[in-house]
Each structure stands twice: as structure tokens, then as C-alpha cells.
């Protein structure tokens, strides 16, 4: 009987707990949960963006139409290519930069700031600057032609189907690498100095310290960063949108987010856009679950 009796202090504390999380719950319900539920409802209805008529229930028609559409699967391909294309250079680049910066005794903050600065630019500004660079007479052609000794070659950064995908990846890597460098830098900073010092006393050289101590202890950060890169690259939009607006062919860079936007706004078909949104949501959900797992693993290791 004693076990069933609740501790009044704990009950009071729980009430305060609800009080403090209430704004978060309200915010989440209004701006996340409601749109998700609404998207599920819309995906089964013939809802047009400007229509004032009540939408008709059409069962699985939107789902069948989207999932059998070549255009949709091309978007899945474009998103997958972009994610994988972004992942390798961002992951390796930011890890390398973080290791280099952490090995320096002076100027760490400066290098971090310099690398992070593209991340604070708006995506629209970034894409506009890179549009000038990728112009046939722009810096990208000049640089590559000087490097390869191929004067006058147009590498068609925005025109060729393969090159335009590479261009969007380049822009994203340039913008994001600084952010992940800081995350890796934080991870490296958390490695206990006693472990490093002990290895030095034992006679480990720099390479051995990197491969036997730093990288193994960075594993939770690596897992976290990997998932974060995938999640954020799946949400890419503005570079592809602006490049297409300036004449780049759509199909190679028609990532899921761009397809959703065009289906909802240009085609005004909210039902189909909702199906695609839910598909993207499901992928993001799985990745977020992995992220939480990776975070938990990190805490356990610590």
C-alpha cells in the first residue's frame, strides 16, 4: 500500500514540468503535428490550392498517381544523388578541417569563423553568387581551364545534366562544410586530454594518436554528423530552384523538395504535393531516429 502512495513533492514537480513543456507542446502541435495530420488528410483528397470548393475524397488516387509517376522517381533519384554526392566531401572535408584546426595552437577561432562564414549567408544570396561563377564566362570555367590547360572549353556548369548536379553539390559543400567542421571540432575538444597525454607518454606518434585515439573516440560525433548531413541535404531547395530559374535543365536537379513546391504552387495540386511531402517525411523520420540513436550512443560512450 505504501508503494502506491504518490509523493506530493514529486506530483507538484510534475505539474511544473507540464507547465514548462506546455509552450513547446502547443508550438509543436500548431506548427508540426497539425501540418503533418493535415498533409495525411489532404493526400486522400482532390485539393487544389486556389479552389474555394470543399475538396473531394478520392481515396488512394493521389498515392497511385505519384508513386507510378516517372517524374516522382526521378526526384527520388535526384535527391539520392545529391545526398550521396554531398555526404562524402562534406563529411571528409569537415573532419579534415576540424583535425587541422584543432592541431593548431593559435588562430583556431579565426579559421573556424572563416570556414563557417558561408553558412550564415542566405541560400538565395549563395546561389546568386555561384550563378555568376558558373556563367560560361565566369570564374569556374576560367579556373578549371587554367588548371587543366584547356583554354576556351565550356564545362557547361549549368547546362550539362551531370555538371549541373555537380554544381549544386559544390555550392552546398562550400556552404555547409564550415558548420560540420565546428561540430567535429567540438567532438575533438571533448576527448579527454589525459588519454592523449597518456598515449604520448607511451610513445605514440601523431598518426597513431589520430587512428588509435582521436578517430575511435570521435565515432559518436561521426554518426551524428553523418545523419545530420543526410537530413539537411534532403531538405535542399533554393540552389536547385534558382539554377532552374536561370536556365538549368530541371530533370537532373528536380529534387523532392523542388518537386513538392512546383506541384503545390505551379500545378496547384495540394493532394499530390502532400503525398510527396509524406514520403519525404518518412525518410526524415527514419534518419531522425538514427540521429537520436547516434546521440544516445554518444552519451553512453561518454
Amino acid at each position: 500500500m505504501m508503494g502506491d502512495r504518490r509523493n506530493p513533492l514529486e506530483e507538484k514537480r510534475n505539474r511544473w514540468g507540464w507547465f514548462f513543456v506546455a509552450p513547446g507542446i502547443v508550438f509543436f502541435s500548431a506548427f508540426s503535428l497539425y501540418p503533418i495530420l493535415y498533409a495525411i488528410w489532404t493526400s486522400f483528397h482532390n485539393k487544389k490550392l486556389l479552389s474555394l470548393k470543399p475538396p473531394k475524397f478520392i481515396g488512394l488516387q493521389n498515392w497511385i498517381s505519384v508513386l507510378s509517376s516517372q517524374d516522382f522517381w526521378n526526384s527520388v533519384r535526384a535527391s539520392a544523388v545529391f545526398c550521396i554526392g554531398v555526404f562524402i566531401p562534406v563529411f571528409l572535408g569537415s573532419l579534415l578541417f576540424a583535425l587541422l584546426i584543432s592541431s593548431r595552437k593559435k588562430g583556431k577561432r579565426f579559421y573556424q569563423m572563416a570556414l563557417y562564414s558561408p553558412a550564415i549567408l542566405s541560400s538565395v544570396v549563395t546561389a546568386s553568387v555561384w550563378l555568376l561563377i558558373f556563367d560560361p564566362r565566369g570564374l569556374a570555367n576560367q579556373f578549371l581551364n587554367t588548371l587543366l590547360g584547356t583554354p576556351g572549353v565550356d564545362h557547361k556548369w549549368l547546362a550539362d545534366p551531370v555538371m549541373v548536379q555537380l554544381s549544386t553539390i559544390l555550392v552546398y559543400v562550400w556552404k555547409q562544410v564550415g558548420y560540420y567542421t565546428i561540430l567535429f571540432g567540438t567532438g575533438i575538444g571533448k576527448i579527454p586530454s589525459s588519454v592523449v597525454e597518456a598515449s604520448m607518454i607511451d610513445g605514440a606518434n601523431s598518426w597513431q594518436r589520430l587512428t588509435r585515439i582521436t578517430l575511435p573516440l570521435l565515432r559518436p560525433t561521426m554518426a551524428l554528423v553523418s545523419v545530420m548531413i543526410f537530413i539537411s541535404s534532403l531538405k535542399t531547395f533554393s540552389t536547385q530552384y534558382l539554377f532552374n530559374q536561370h536556365g538549368a535543365p530541371l530533370a537532373p536537379i528536380n529534387v523532392l523538395t523542388l518537386n513538392i513546391y512546383r506541384t503545390a504552387l505551379s500545378d496547384q495540386n495540394l493532394g499530390k504535393a502532400s503525398v510527396m511531402s509524406l514520403f519525404l517525411f518518412f525518410i526524415l523520420l527514419v534518419l531522425s531516429w538514427l540521429q537520436v540513436k547516434a546521440g544516445g550512443q554518444g552519451e553512453e560512450l561518454e
Binding site: 557547361k156 550539362d160 536556365g247 538549368a248 535543365p249 537532373p252 512546383r262 505551379s266 496547384q268
Partner: peptide
């Protein structure tokens, strides 16, 4: 008309620059 206009742009740009 809005959807058709988008499709037309895609088609021409795919032919012209996408080969």
C-alpha cells in the same frame, strides 16, 4: 495553362541544354 507553360519550358530546356 500554368502547368502547360512549365512543361513547355522543361521540354525546350531539356532539348536545348540537356541534349
Amino acid at each position: 495553362s500554368a502547368r502547360l507553360s512549365t512543361l513547355l519550358s522543361e521540354t525546350i530546356q531539356n532539348v536545348m541544354v540537356g541534349g
